[in-house]
Design a protein around this nucleic acid. Structure first.
Length: 280
DNA sequence: CGGCAAACCTGCGAGC
DNA sequence: TGCTCGCAGGTTTGCC
């Protein structure tokens, strides 16, 4: 579900209402999501206040006053929403609830339960197994054409598949990989090591452009995703190719009845959308 | 190490 | 209306 823009949007939405507030109660409503909830989690966080909320890759980091950081991943179907003062009772799949001193609640709802909740000493975050092997943030300067070119050298897997590898670059998921390759006019089936310098010079800024535009739009809502305030994202209206099989390519003048329009293929077990006329 | 399929889950839309 | 099938924003694991 949530890729970098969705997680970033949620993080921004959580900051204002939660920062500075004390967690009065952590309600753990089942024993596991993707993994078991950490032992003693409630005890570890109750009574602490929220110092800051940030994002690394697709993880939400809630930095607490007791020098621990609560780590949350939304998986495919997770939502993290804040309720001012909740009137209605818990919904189906509300698995983890933080109640605050001002009576507000942050609720993790995750139908498919691919999400993750973990806790870590803030000092040791970088060494945590989730983060130790991650690639650079795509919106940082560490993600440069020179870096990408070097990393792609040894990889003959299709470029679309490579972009989903979080060791190469974090945050890019299935939607934005298709969108960024369309933006840079690169055929997603090309072996990663076949991209030349001009193509890589197009791809890096295209990834940034697509992610930044999506953040501006509050992310993409396909089915589960909502912002922290419960509103939908609206970048799905700006998709050029994702989920648009058979539709005319926005950058092409060719007749979709002749070309078949946008193609849907499967790579690495996941759907890829692209325009064979524009991307090569 | 690279590459690929399968696994983890529930829900929903399409097609019959 | 109701069933089955396929597919969905991610990541890990196990096998070759």
């Amino acid at each position: 579900m949530p890729e970098l823009p969705e997680v970033e949007t949620v993080v921004r939405g959580l900051k204002k209402p939660l920062t500075g507030h004390v967690i009065s109660k952590a309600d753990i409503r089942r024993k596991n999501l993707r993994y078991p909830f950490p032992k003693g989690l409630a005890k570890d966080i109750e009574g602490a206040s929220v110092r800051n909320i940030s994002r690394r890759a697709k993880y939400i980091l809630i930095d607490l006053s007791n020098d621990k950081t609560l780590i949350i991943h939304l998986g495919m179907s997770g939502r993290m929403t804040v309720f001012d003062s909740r009137q209605d009772s818990y919904q189906k799949h509300d698995h983890f609830v933080l109640r605050f001193d001002n009576n507000s609640e942050a609720v993790l709802n995750d139908a498919r339960r691919f999400g993750i909740v973990d806790i870590c000493d803030t000092d040791n975050l970088d060494a945590h197994k989730f983060f130790a092997h991650l690639g650079p943030e795509p919106l940082s300067n560490h993600f440069s054409p020179a870096y990408l070119q070097e990393k792609l050298l040894a990889r003959k897997t299709p470029i679309k598949v490579a972009l989903l590898d979080q060791k190469l670059v974090v945050g890019v998921g299935n939607i934005y990989a298709s969108e960024a390759l369309f933006d840079s006019q690169i055929d997603p089936t090309r072996p990663a090591n076949s991209l030349n310098k001009p193509e890589i010079n197009r791809l890096v800024p295209a990834i940034r452009r697509v992610l930044e535009a999506a953040i501006k739009a509050g992310g993409s809502s396909l089915r589960d995703y909502v912002q922290a305030n419960g509103e939908l994202g609206y970048f799905q209206h700006n998709w050029a190719v994702y989920n648009k099989k058979g539709q005319p390519c926005p950058g092409c003048t060719c007749d979709p009845f002749m070309t078949g329009g946008i193609q849907k293929i499967t790579q690495g077990g996941r759907s890829t959308f692209y325009c064979p006329q524009k991307q090569n």
